[in-house]
Write a protein that binds this DNA or RNA. Structure first.
Lengths: 110, 110
DNA sequence: CTGTATCCACGACGATACTG
DNA sequence: CAGTATCGTCGTGGATACAG
C-alpha cells in the first residue's frame, strides 16, 4: 500500500502563499474531476467514463488527493458490488469559481 | 526543503481549459517570480537574492518558461558584464490578480 | 463496481562545475 | 553578472494485472 502522499510543490512562503490552491489544481486530472462534480454528485465509474482517457489508477489518486484537501466528500454505500459517490464540498465549489477566472484570463490573452 | 516537483501537463480539453493558467503557475518558483516582478522590474541577480533558496538553474528555467508564455519580458543590455532585466507583462499582472484570489480562497477555508 | 499492486517512462529540479 | 552543462534524484501518472 503506497503512500499517495502529498508533497508540497511550492517552497514555504508564509505571507502570501497560494500553495493550497495550486497544490489542489496541479494534478493532471484534478480540474476535470472538480468540473465533473460541480455538475453534481457522481460515482467512480461515471467519472471515469466522463473524463476522457483517465485510468482507474490516476482517477483514484486524484480523488484521494482532493478528498484529503477537503475539496470533495466520499460516501460509501455497503451494497454489492460496492457503490461510492463523490460530492464537491462548498470549499470545492468555491475553488471552481477560481478556475472560471483562469478560463477568462486565458481567453482574454489568447 | 522538498526534493521533487514534477508538474504534469493537463490533458487536452478544448471547451473549458484552464491549462494555460495552471501550466504557468505550477512550477515550483513561478509564482514567487511573478510576485517579485509585480513589485517592479528586476534583474536576474536581484530575483535570485530575493527568492529564498532558488538555484540559478531553476530560476533560469522558470524565467524561460514564463517568458515563453508571455508572462514576462526579458531585456538584455549590451553592457559588460551583461545586464538583463525582467518585467511583468500586462498578461502577467492580470495573472497575479488570480493568485490573490487563490490566497483569499485558501484563507477562507483554513 | 471500485479500486490496489507492480513496473516503467518522463520531466522538474538540486548540486556542482564552468563560460562569455 | 547571467547564465549553461552534466549528472542524479524522485514524484507523477500510464499500462497491465489483480482483488474485495
Amino acid at each position: 500500500m503506497e503512500a499517495n502522499n502529498y508533497i508540497p510543490r511550492l517552497p514555504a512562503q508564509v505571507d502570501c502563499s497560494i500553495d493550497p490552491a495550486i497544490n489542489v489544481l496541479s494534478g493532471k486530472w484534478s480540474f476535470l474531476v472538480i468540473r465533473e462534480l460541480y455538475r453534481g454528485t457522481k460515482r467512480f465509474g461515471e467519472l471515469q467514463r466522463n473524463i476522457d482517457d483517465v485510468s482507474a489508477r490516476a482517477l483514484s489518486g486524484a480523488l484521494k488527493h482532493l478528498e484529503k484537501n477537503g475539496i470533495l466528500e466520499r460516501q460509501v454505500f455497503p451494497t454489492v458490488p460496492a457503490t461510492v459517490e463523490y460530492t464537491l464540498t462548498p470549499k470545492g465549489q468555491d475553488l471552481y469559481q477560481i478556475t472560471k477566472m483562469m478560463k477568462v484570463w486565458a481567453a482574454k490573452w489568447t
